[in-house]
Amino acid sequence: MDSVFPITLTLNGRTVTHDAPQRMTLADFLRQTVGLTATHIGCEHGVCGACTVYVDGRIARGCLMFAIQAEGCDIRTLEGLADDERMQALQKHFHARNALQCGFCTSGMLLTAHQYLGSQEEPSREEAREYLSGNYCRCTGYQAIVEATLAASDELAAKAGCKDEEAGRAEA
């Protein structure tokens, strides 16, 4: 039987400690030990992208890291972005545009799109396709995902524009 070891990390903004076997991947740890199941496991060899999570502020594969390596790390999953404005915009447009069917790739796809919009001021269709190309989706054919990502970006830009305008007015 596997011995377990305590692992302390920041998970979705809170410091937590859980016991896990040394050979358990971060993805299994999140799902089985912690019980956060938005992160999915599609291949366990780092190719499909379903287990994508934020590790110290950058997206990474949850299956390509042992949980014990995450000691002291800042891990954020889809559950931890529920109040995030950018994520909410993405979720809204994924829903409206039917950018998901079975939903199994969706968490990973959303996190990747989230980092993309966070790192790029003016996303383009071609660049979005490229950025999302590490995440496998078998259902949609990708076009809806790309379009939903760009629609979320437009909405966020419009909101930011309004805020800038308001700020400008306030200053004036």
């Binding site: 938005a38 994924f94 998901l100």
Partner: peptide
């Protein structure tokens, strides 16, 4: 799709 987009799916695993 709203539910699944919030990571609220419930697959066998």
């Amino acid at each position: 799709a709203r539910r699944l987009s919030q990571g609220r799916g419930r697959y066998v695993d």
